[in-house]
Every structure is written in C-alpha cells, then in structure tokens.
Simulated scan of single mutants.
Amino acid sequence: MAYTRAVVRELLRYRPPVLMVPYVVKKPFPITDTYTAPKGSMVVPTTYMALRDPEVYENPDVFDPERYYSGDAEVKGAKNYLVFGTGPHYCLGQQYAQLNLALMIGKASLLLDWKHHPTPKSEEIKVFATIFPMDDCPLTFDYRKW
C-alpha cells in the first residue's frame, strides 16, 4: 500500500479539499511589517501556496506520486504539507481521511472501470469553499466483469 499512500498524499497536495482556514484574531496579530490585524477581525489564510512551493516541491503543478513514494517530499515538505492544518489546530481526522481515501481508491479500482472524459477545462479549477474542476470532472463508471 506504499504507492497508494503516495498517491493519496500527492492527490491531497495537488488538489487540496480545503484551501482557506478562517480565524478570528484574539489579539492584535502582525500580518506584515506595516499591517497588524486588529483583535476581532477575520483572517483567512490559504494553504494553497505552501502546497505549491517550488523550493519544496519540484514541478509543483504536476501530479507526481513519486515525490512521496521514492522522493524526499515527506522530509522536505513536512512544514508545507498543510492539508490538515498544523499545530494545535490540526485536523484530528487526518489519518482516518487518508486511510478512507486509500480504501475507496482501492475498492473502486477493483470493482469499477473508470473512464474520464476530459474537456478543455478539466485542469482549470473553480473555488467555492473547496476546489472543483471547471468541467465538474465528467466520469463514468461501469462494474468490472470478472
């Protein structure tokens, strides 16, 4: 399952399900040298840029599970892999989510023939709380005949 795990990690890096994490500022919080967010304001940072950092992920706009399978993405990208947050606010369900995704990929691969119908907008994304392909990812599934 090492390669499946690498695919799941890369899938979540390449197309993270959540891009923004809103926080209410509890005390004045410096954003830059010239601006401090006042207490009570809403700060909405994005994780997207950290997951696309070319200093950490070579060819960051390419889906490449090898970076987690035989590469050094786990070590180099440890601070940048913010798919599930970090510190005291990390997602408690991160292991469950990754294992569940691996399970669904494995089960669907065994039981279904997948066919993606790419369009010119397949690689463009739209944002609405999470990201989606512009063409809504047209797929068809047929049960495998054994």
Rank of each mutant, 00 (worst) to 15 (best):
M1C: 09
M1S: 13
T4V: 15
A6P: 08
V7E: 03
P17V: 04
P17A: 04
L19A: 02
M20P: 00
M20Q: 13
V25Q: 02
K26E: 12
P30G: 05
I31K: 09
T32Y: 06
D33Q: 15
T34M: 13
Y35A: 02
Y35H: 09
T36E: 09
T36A: 10
A37I: 00
G40Q: 02
G40T: 00
V43P: 02
V43S: 03
M49T: 08
A50Q: 01
L51K: 01
V56Q: 04
Y57W: 14
Y57N: 01
E58L: 05
N59V: 04
N59E: 14
D61K: 13
V62K: 05
F63L: 09
D64Y: 08
E66A: 14
Y68S: 11
A73P: 11
A78F: 10
N80E: 12
N80R: 05
F84M: 03
C91H: 14
L92C: 04
G93R: 02
Q94V: 03
Q95K: 13
Y96G: 03
A97F: 04
N100H: 08
M104Q: 14
A108W: 01
L110A: 12
L112A: 00
D113A: 09
K115R: 10
T119C: 05
S122H: 01
E124L: 06
E124A: 04
A129G: 13
A129V: 15
T130N: 11
M134K: 11
D135E: 03
F141G: 07
D142K: 15
R144N: 10
